[in-house]
Every structure is written in C-alpha cells, then in structure tokens.
Design a protein around this nucleic acid. Structure first.
Lengths: 221, 221, 221, 221
DNA sequence: AATGAATGAGGCTTCATTCAT
DNA sequence: GATGAATGAAGCCTCATTCAT
C-alpha cells in the first residue's frame, strides 16, 4: 500500500519541525541577529537551501516560533488552572506553572525574554506575547475581584506588574552564572504577589493550595 | 589670553558628546545591531571615520552609553532619596523618580530595557545595570525591615520583583502605540508594591508622603 | 548514470581552482597587500562573496597558493633530478629546472620572490619555502661531497648562497623592463656556482651533461 | 646674538631627521604597508599632521629613506675598499663591509631586503638599490679581470649572483629566531664567492688579506 | 524536496591625507 | 612649524537570499 502523497507531506512537516527545533536552539542561545541561517541549518542538520523550501525568510521562522511557543505555554497554564475553583488558587497555579515551565526549560525562557534583540519589527510580536500573558493573569485577577476574594484594583496595571516581576526574577535567574533552583524563589514571589493584591495574610500563610513544587525536570520541549 | 591646548580638548570632547548623543538616539530607536555606524555618523553630523577618532569600536560607544546613562539615573535617584527620612518614603521616592525620569525620556528607557537586543556580550553589562537598580531598591527595603516599618522578607528576591514590575510597566508603556501619561500608572503601582511588602493599608491609603507628580516634562537629556 | 554528488563537488573544486588562478595572477602582479578581494573576484569572474564560500580569508588563499606552488615546483625539480646519476649533474639539473620553470612562468617567480611584500605573518611561510629549496640544493651538495665529487664544505651556507644567487638573478630579470631570455644567464650561473664548490674546471668546461636548454615556452600553468 | 632664521631651519631639519628615524624603525619592523603614519608619528614623537609639513606623502618618506640609507652604506663600502690595492682584496673588503654593517644593524638589513613589501612602484627604487650594489661589486670584478687576477667572466651576471648570495645569507640570518653571529658565515661565503670567479685555491686558503672580523657591534646607525 | 554554490548589498574598520587653529 | 581633529575612499568580511541541478 503506497501513500506517496501522504508520505511526502509527512516528511515535509517532519523537516519543518526539525528546522523549527534547530532555530529554537540557536535563537535562544544567540539571539535573533546573532543567529545565522547557517547556524540554523547546522543545528537542524539540513542544508541552508533546504530551509528556504519550508520558510520564506528568517523572520518567518522566528515569528512562527514565538507564536507556537507562546501558544503552547498558555495552553499549559490554562489547563493547569482549569482544575482549580478558587480564583486566588487559579492565580497561584498560573504563576506556578509559568515558573515551573521556565525553570524546566531555560532555553524557552531566554527566547522569550531576550527576544528584544530581534530588532525593530519584532517588538510588536514580542509585545503581543507579553500581552497575552498579562491578560491571562488579568482574567484571574478580575475573577478574584468579582468573587470578592480581593478588593477592587486596577487589574490591568497589576497584571502587567505581576508579569514583570515574574519576568525579572526568571531573567536574573537565567543570567546567574550558577543559578540555584528557580523554585526557591517561589514562596517569596508568591507571598509578595498575593499580598500586593490584598489577599489576606492568613490565606498567604496557609501556603499553596496546591501540592508543593516537585523537582523541575529539564523538560525536553 | 590663548588656551590652545584646552581649546582643542574642549572641541574634542564636544564632538565626543555629539557622537554619544547621536548614538544614543539611534541605538534607542533601532537597537544595537540595527544601528549602523553610518546612522550614528548621520545623527551626529560627523563623518564615519571621524567617529573612530573618538571611539575604537561601535561596541565601545554602546558600553559607554550604558555605563554613563545608568550612572546618571542612579545618581538622580539617590539624591532624590536622600531628602527623605522614612525608609518607606525612600522606597516610594526611588520608585517615583525612576518612573518620572523614564516618563520624561522615553529614549533612555528604550535603551535600558531593550538593550537585550544588543546581542551576546552585552548581557553582562545589561545584567549589571539591572542589578545595580535592584540593589538600590534592596537597600531601602533592608532599611525598612531594620526599622520595623515592614516585616522581615527576602529582600533580594523582592527587590528583583519590584524592579521587574517597574520594568514591565514602563516597557508596555513604551510599546504602546499611543501611550497615555506614564504617571497614571503610579498610584496603582505604588499601592501594589507597598502592599506586597506588608506596608499597612492605612499608610498606603494616606497617599504619597511626597508632593504629587507634576506633569512629566520631556527632559532634553 | 547520474552522479549528483560527484558533480557538485567537481564544480566546486573547479571554482576553487579558478579562484586560485585569479588570485595567483593578481597577487603576482600587485603583491599581497595591493591585491583586493575585488581584484581576485574580477580575475576569477566570480562574485566577491562567492570566494568566501571556498576560502575563509584572503590570507588563506595566499597561504594555499604558496604551499601548492612551492610543492609543485619542488616535485618538478625532484622528478627531473631523479633521472641523473652523477651528483653534480643532479645539482645542475636542479638549477636548470628552476631556472626553466621561472623563465617559463614569470608570474610564479614574482609570487615567490616578492612575497616578502605580503607583510608580517607571511615571513614564516616564505622562509619555509626558501628553506625547502635550500635544503633540496643542500641534499645534492651533500651527496656530491659524500661522493668525493667536490671537497668538503659547509653545505648549509653554500646552499643558501646558491639559492640566493639564483633568486637574485631571477629577480633582476623579473624587474628588467624588457628582459632578454633568462636562459642566457644559465651558462654563467652554472659556471660560477659549480666553480664555487670546487668542481674541477675541466668538468665545468665540458658543458652541461644534459641537453641544452630549449626555448622556454610560457607555460600556461 | 639672535639667529631666528637659522634656528628655525635647524629645528626644522632636526624634525626631519627625527621623522626619518622613526619611519626607519617602523618600516624596518613592520614593512611599508603595515606601517601607518600614526606609527611613524608615535615613533618620532611628533603629531601626524606635523609629518606632513616635512614630507608630502608616506611614499616620499620611504623613498628618501631608501636613497639615503643606500648611499650611506655605499659610501662606507667605498671608503673601506679605497684602502686596498689588490682588486681581489677590494672585493673581499666590500663583501666584508656589507656583511659587517648588516650584522651590526639588523634593522637596516630588514628594510633593504623586505622592501618588496612596499608594493608596486617601489620595485623600481628597490631594484635601483640592488643594482647599485651589484654594480659596485661588478666594478671590483672588472678590475680583477683587467688585472689578470681572475679569468674573464660575465661580470654582470656574476655580480648579481654575488649580491644574491650575500642577500640570501643575510635574509636567512634575519629570519632565524635565534641567529648566531652573522660573521660565522663569512669564511664559507668568502671561499665560495672567490672560488666562483676562479681565484686560485692558494689565495683563498691564505685567508683574508685583511684583519679578521672583530665582534660586530650593534651600530647605532 | 533538497543541496551546494553563488550573489550582492551592507557592515565595521583602517588609514593616507587635509584642515582649522 | 606643529597639533588635534576630521574626512572619505577603500578594504575585508558576513549573511539573507536565490539559483541550477
């Protein structure tokens, strides 16, 4: 039973993935401008010309990477959050999930936070990504406010600040030469963030409503 | 009264400043890699070769810019803070000053927060800069803890988170196509940050201990 | 019968050769520093960028040229010498072959003797090349001494001096605006060099043990 | 007693000399193309602009250097030779003097023999210089022939070969990392050169007609 | 689908020379 | 006479993209 058509397509999309993988590695390691198509080709073990069969430009690879990577992470957060009922717990879980994923995948974190290096024209894309995270957080905060769990606040600015706090803690951890486990920062970060939106001290002291962080395995993707 | 020596020196350092200015503008607008020496030369109205009389490499210009710019800002913060006695007020003033300066000088802000785009090799410099700000904040938090004004916390992580929150709020503002006044974010940001370290609600509600933010003028330098 | 792999390789190395040829011409004509990559590209009828697919730097081209050119010449000398039995005849043939090759290929000669102009860093390479020739000569002189054909002498210094004499005669010929045939110098050169190591006058007067020099055709490569 | 005019002139030519000295050092060390006007200025402790008051171009400095340096050496040789009566002795002394001067002044030697690096347009000058030496030698050989001290030979080619032999021995010595005394080469060189023109073996064995070489002091200029 | 080779625009830097003082 | 500063033409090299096979 021959499936020439299907097979071809399969192989093609396999190549696509390989290229995306290679690009991901090199972009994350060296930044956009300092990654040459040659580097991607080498990392993906494909010829430079071959890449251009699948992607029209270098930029298109980067854009696709940002889109899919962010989508994956957001999906992960949302499914983790869906388990929780309590709005504050939802926020906690979201925070924890992001930290967990980043801790387990330094590469992705670097790509996210240093994408500024991609130069003009990526600002938009990068901004959109940050924005999606911020709005995710905002939705939980809004729910918490609506629920009466926390007092009314400007959830837009607050969610941006939350994301920024998270971002910077991760970034500093990334830049540390010999970083300790990122999860060490979790209790403090959790406490100050919850406190910042007026979660009662008792609730904070009660500890995570969720099972404690396991060791963050270095996820393969 | 001739001062030939001094005079030439004066002219030289004037050129240096002009170049630094031009570089600042273009770096801030386009990022490091997307700024060509030709752009800097054009912005500084000097020949490309002329730049090399004053700076050995493009990188050296960028590094000098990061160093001096950060130093200026830190000095400004410290002198503003020196006026205050109360440790919490100090923190407030620091926060406000940074916001004020950035609001008045979007260019500087961009250079600071998008320097990641400068590519490998500036990470260190950039990190150092972030670190200096974080430690500045930390020193005020430590004082507040010592003073009993706030309960004991991990001030290292907290200061990093504070800086991150500030950073992200400014960054989002920078990226907004038609940003409103940055100072609009101040009350909320102030409230959540103070709250996050356990400042009593009464103190927060009392409002800034300092005169309200005036309009942020677009400072010329 | 398709041989796609081989074919591409063939084309690549054809280009390599073309570049090497073009570089050879221009280096020989203008010297290393006065040869621009643009010149090589023009001579090889390839784009400047194309050259960099085959060679990492301008210097690498020059080095390769020195290496292969010297090797070719030495091989030619050795095979010509191999035919002779008599050690003195060997020396004669070596001398004659070099003169013959240079006479037929002024370009190569220039590259060899003016490579000093290549600037610091080629001294080593150039020296090594001179040295190889000197040692070649030395080996024949040593054999002649061992054979009793000539009295014992310091063959190291003598071979260097021989090479120098040869070098200078060729160089002067190269520099002459309208040089006569280089082979005109052969009888005199042969006589003084043989005499200098104590070859009996009778042997010298007997003339070359080898067939007289034919017209030196301008070899194509 | 004021001598403003004279003084000015004196100072001017003093500067000229200083520049020439500095240029000599740097040219000799790095070659023509690898010597920048900045290097000369630094070596002469004068401003780059100042140089252009005394010399119109970089090339003019080099040309002047070659001319005067060669002239000095030739004068030295001629005065040393003038003392001798015997034509063969004259040749010996010339040979010895050049060796002596070069041995004592590696810098000058390098400038002479590596001047090829000066690129097109200096070939002429360099050639002229080599030629002057060769003709000097030739004049002694001619005298020796006329005198009957040696048999008739093509003195033109012979003198070129002599110069080349000398040149190469010095060059190899220059290139040696840890060169022994150059004068060690003298006896061998003397023997082969004299032998090459048919000087009787007895005369050669008799040793130099002149006092043995003293230690070659590193002459200051 | 994929490859190796080639292109050409553009980037950083050097440096002989000129100029204002 | 001399200086520091500036100029501008090259020069070497990189790299995203295209092309022939």
């Amino acid at each position: 039973m021959r499936r020439p058509r299907q097979q071809t397509t399969d192989r093609a999309s396999a190549s696509r993935e390989t290229i995306l993988d290679g690009a991901f590695q090199t972009f994350a390691k060296n930044g956009y401008r300092d990654t040459a198509m040659d580097d991607i080709a080498a990392a993906a073990e494909i010829s430079k010309g071959g890449i251009y069969f699948h992607f029209p430009t270098k930029e298109s690879i980067f854009r696709e990477l940002m889109r899919t990577t962010a989508a994956k992470l957001i999906a992960k957060v949302e499914s983790a959050v869906a388990v929780e009922r309590d709005p504050i717990s939802k926020a906690e879980v979201a925070l924890r999930t992001v930290l967990e994923v980043f801790a387990g995948h330094r590469t992705m974190a670097r790509l996210f936070f240093e994408a500024g290096g991609a130069g003009r024209g990526f600002q938009t894309e990068l901004n959109a990504m940050h924005d999606r995270f911020a709005r995710l957080i905002q939705s939980y905060l809004d729910a918490a406010v609506a629920d009466g769990a926390i007092p009314p606040i400007d959830t837009r600015i607050t969610s941006v600040a939350w994301f920024g706090a998270l971002d910077e803690v991760v970034a500093q951890w990334l830049l540390a030469s010999r970083p300790g486990p990122l999860e060490d920062a979790y209790p403090t970060l959790r406490a100050i963030l919850l406190r910042s939106v007026g979660v009662p001290e008792a609730r904070i002291a009660a500890g995570p409503a969720i099972e404690p962080l396991a060791a963050f395995p270095e996820a393969s993707e």
